[in-house]
Design a protein around this nucleic acid. Structure first.
Lengths: 193, 193, 193, 193
DNA sequence: TATGAATGAGTCTTCATTCAT
DNA sequence: AATGAATGAAGACTCATTCAT
C-alpha cells in the first residue's frame, strides 16, 4: 500500500469515526460510510470488507492516540491530588458525552461481538487504567495526601462506579448534578478534607 | 380482544422475551418473533406493530412481576445486614448473567431510543432502588449494624458500581472473582468486620 | 333478508358512498369500509364480497334516486329557457365538485372494469340525458325561444363539452371563471341574446 | 451516470410506457416494471424510487417528443381548413385509442395526485393547445375560410368537447360513428359548407 | 346473522457484496 | 487502485379472505 492509500485509509477512519460517534455501531452501514467519505462502494471494500472491520480499525487508532493520562501527568510537577482531580474532570466530560465519543458505539460493538475477555482490547485498556489509578493512589498514600486504602480495590471500585455513570448517562440519563455528587463521594473516599 | 387473544398475547411476550434475552434488541426482527411463535406474519401485527412495541410490552410485564426486593425482605425477621447480603447475592447472579436476562437488550433499546430522563421507566426503577437501598442503610445505621454514612450518597455509589459491573461483564467480561472482590469492597464500606 | 338486514345494507352503502366520494374507487379497501361502518370484517362479507360489489350497489342506488331533471322541470310552469338555465346551473355545481360526488370514483371504476358499451349503466344514463336535452331543445325551438338547430347533434355536443369540463376540473383544474365562460358559450349557441 | 446507464434509463421508460398504456397507472407496481424490464428489484431503484417517479419521467419524455401540431403544419402550404382537418383526424385517432396511449394512465395519475393547476404540466399543455387552436381559427377567419367567431371561446369549446369524447370513449364507450358525428358538428360550427 | 382472530400472498424498500471496466 | 452499476436476499407491512364460534 503506497503512501497515498495510507492517506485514504486515514481519511476513511476519520470520517467513519464521526459516523460512529453520531449513530453508534449497529445502525451504521457500508453505504453510510461510502457516502460520508465521498468514495465509491468498491473503493471502500479495497480497504475494509465490513463495518465491523472499519470500527475495529477506528478503535485501534483510538487506542494508539490515547496515551496514559497518569504517567504523562505524573512527570509534571503537581501534587498527586491535582492529578487525580484532572483525571476526574476528564472522566466527567466523557460521562457527560460533551465531546464526540465512541462510548455507545463501543458498547454496541461489544454486545454484538462478544469476545473472550482475553482477546478484548478494551479489557486490557480497562485493566491498565485500574493499574495506573492504583499506582496513583499509592503515590498519594505515600506522601500523605490520601487515606490509607487497599489501593487495588479502591481503584477498581472507582473505575466500576465511573463505568456505571457512563452507561447510565447514555441510558436512563444522569444529570450533571448527580455526576458531581458521585465524583465528590469518590474523592471523599480518597482525600481527607 | 377476548380471553383467547390475551393468552396469545402472553405467549408472544413470553416467546419474545427468550429471543431478546438471546439476541439483544437490535438484531431482533418481526420475522424472528413470528417464526419463534409459530404464528403468521399478519397475526403478530394484530398484537404489536413493531419490534419496539413488543419489547416495550415485555419490559412492562417484567416491571409488573418484579416487586421491591427490600420491602419484601424487611418484613421477615432477619438482620439488616442479612437483607443487604441477599441483595448483593441477587445482584451478583444478575451481573453474571446466569439467568436469562434482558440486560443487553435493554441497553440496546435505550441506546436506540434515547428517551428523556423523565419518560424513561428504567430511570424510575433505578431511582427507586437507590431510595430503597438508602433506607436499608439507614436502618442498619440506626441499629448499629452499619457504619455511619451519608446514606443517600453511599446508596448511589453502590448502585453505580453495580451498574458498572453489569455493563462491563457484558462488554469486556468480568470474572466471578473480580465481582466477588468488588462486592466485598462495597460491603466493607458499609459493615464493620 | 329480513328488514333489519336491509337496514344494515343501507347503512353500509351510505357510509361507503362517503368513502368513495373522498378517496375515489381504487384506493378504497374492504378494511376502510369495515372500519367506517363499525362492523366486523365477516359482517361486511355477508352483504358484499368485494369493493367492486359495494361500489356497484352504491351506483345502482344513486341511479334509482336520480330522477330525470328535465321531465320533472317541464311539468312546472317555466319557460324552456328557464329549465335550460337550471340544468346548466346544476351541471356547474357538479363540475366544480362542491357537492360530495362520485365523479372520480366512477371514472376510476370505469377505467378499471372496462364494460362493453351495452352493459354499462352509465352509458344508458348518458344517452338518456342527451335524449332529454334534445327534446328540451326542440321544445325551445318550437316556441321560438331557441335558435333552429339540429337538436340531437347540439344536445350531444353540449353533453360532450360538459363531460370535458367535468374531467378537466378533476385533472388539470379549471377555474370557476373558465367554467362560466364555457357555459356562456354553450348557452349563446342556443338562445338568442 | 455514464452513457450506458442513460441507455438503461431509456429502456426502462420505454418498457414502462407499454405497461402504463396497458394497465393504466394505479395498478402498476415496481414489480411489474422490474419484471417487464428483466432487471433486478434493486436495479430499478437506482433509477427511480417509485412508480410515480417512473410515470412522471415517462410523461416528461412524451412531452419532449410531442411538438406542436399546428405550428408545424402551418408552415407547409395547405389551407387553414386542411390543417384543421388534420388536427381533427389526429384527435379522432387518439380518442379511439387505436394507438397505444397514456390517456387512462394520465387520468388515474391526476386523480391520485391532485396537483395545483399551476404546477400541473398537463394544464400548460392544454392551455397551449387552446391557444394554438385559437390562432388557427383566427387565421382561417382572416382569409375567409372560417365563420367569424369569438376565436378564444370557440377554441376552448372545441377542446372541452374533444376531452369529453376522450374520457367518455374510455368509460362508457363511444362508437366511431358518434365520434364522427360530433367532429362533424364541431367542424360545421367553424367552416361553411 | 355476526364476530374478529388468523392466514399468507403480495409489494415496497434497503443493503451488502460483486464485478466488468 | 478505483468506480459505480447490478444483483438478490432480507425484512417490513398491508390486505383480502376464511372460518371457528
Amino acid at each position: 500500500m503506497g503512501e497515498k492509500s495510507e492517506q485514504k485509509r486515514q481519511m476513511i477512519l476519520t470520517t467513519a469515526r464521526h459516523i460512529f460517534a453520531q449513530k453508534g455501531y449497529k445502525d451504521v452501514t457500508m453505504k453510510d460510510i461510502v457516502e460520508a467519505c465521498g468514495i465509491s462502494r468498491g473503493g471502500l471494500y479495497l480497504y475494509f470488507s465490513s463495518v465491523r472491520e472499519v470500527f475495529e480499525a477506528v478503535l485501534k487508532e483510538e487506542e494508539a492516540e490515547t496515551d496514559d493520562v497518569f504517567s504523562r501527568r505524573l512527570q509534571e510537577d503537581a501534587t498527586v491530588a491535582d492529578v487525580l482531580m484532572i483525571f476526574f474532570k476528564e472522566q466527567k466530560k466523557e460521562i457527560l458525552g460533551r465531546k464526540e465519543d465512541l462510548t455507545v458505539a463501543t458498547y454496541e460493538y461489544n454486545f454484538a461481538h462478544a469476545l473472550s475477555a482475553e482477546e478484548n482490547p478494551q479489557r486490557r485498556k480497562f485493566d491498565d487504567a485500574v493499574q495506573a489509578l492504583s499506582q496513583l493512589l499509592e503515590a498519594g498514600m505515600e506522601n500523605g495526601e490520601f487515606y490509607e486504602l487497599e489501593s487495588r480495590a479502591a481503584a477498581a471500585n472507582i473505575m466500576y462506579a465511573l463505568e456505571g455513570l457512563r452507561v447510565l448517562s447514555r441510558t436512563i440519563g444522569i444529570s450533571e448534578e448527580r455526576i458531581d455528587d458521585e465524583l465528590f463521594t469518590l474523592v471523599s473516599g480518597i482525600v481527607p478534607d
